[in-house]
Design a protein around this nucleic acid. Sequence first.
DNA 1: TGAGCTATGTATAATTT
DNA 2: TAAATTATACATAGCTC
Lengths: 166, 166
Amino acid sequence: MTRKKVKLAYIEDLSSRKATFRKRKAGLMKKMYEISTLCGVDACAIIYSPFNNEPQVWPSNEGVQDVLSKFEELCEIDQSKQKLNQDSFLRQRIRKTDEQLKKQIRLNREKELSQIMYRLLSGEILHNLSIDDVNDLQTKMVRFRKDITMRIHSLEEAEGHPINGN
Amino acid sequence: MTRKKVKLAYIEDLSSRKATFRKRKAGLMKKMYEISTLCGVDACAIIYSPFNNEPQVWPSNEGVQDVLSKFEELCEIDQSKQKLNQDSFLRQRIRKTDEQLKKQIRLNREKELSQIMYRLLSGEILHNLSIDDVNDLQTKMVRFRKDITMRIHSLEEAEGHPINGN
DNA sequence: TGAGCTATGTATAATTT
DNA sequence: TAAATTATACATAGCTC
């Protein structure tokens, strides 16, 4: 029942640490309640513990969310010069990913063109094997190949650099 | 120097309220420091006061942001039944868009195959126009077309459904 | 205003149940 | 384990400067 002055350092012993945590957490929550009642202020606290799965909060889960949304709002306004906050960062990332996706889809459509042309062309070859058609076919193919090559080049230039996954 | 038991109610008098706030806030911050040191836990507190423009926080502005981002993350997991919050909604959207993008890129690579084959093939046709090669070429093309058609079909089945932009 | 000072109430370490 | 107890350290109301 004697008590020496508590040494302010991590309590190595698990059970004493746990006991201390439980007691002090209760005390802290009480103090939070008192200051907000006595002084009429909004306040919240969040404490993570290895002993509880859920974070320990005051005044309540919802109360905390209210208070911290207010906090984040203030941070956003005040820290406009600082780095973008999480939310706008995410939005920015979405925008970029969306743009990439749209480019890929556009690119795909172009590639599908040459794919379809290949199919048509090979079909054409297969069903028009007479020697008389070869010169005509050759002309068609030269034109088509030139066209496709140009399309691909202009696409690649538009992309600037190859797009890689992730 | 006498002190009666403090009545737990809003302190009407401004200056005493302010004094009480200042003292108790300091006490609270000290207790926060103590519990986190003694028990090795993450914790934060935010207190709004009409006396300070900025919200009073522990351990620091950045520390609070770290702790509360963790808190929000946990909330997401726990409140899976509730509506998704803005942040996780955005994250989810990013993940989905990323997945779509990866699919598109994969699809593109496969399509590039047939595109390259087309180029090779048309080059081959253009430079091997002797009648003697036609039968040989025809055999090659039949095999190639079959192969490509199968590839495309299996790709389309693997995708399940057509991918559309946005 | 706020800082410093006690007297007293409160929180809590150590201990038992 | 966690609740209850109790002695002691600590926080702080009320005061002065």
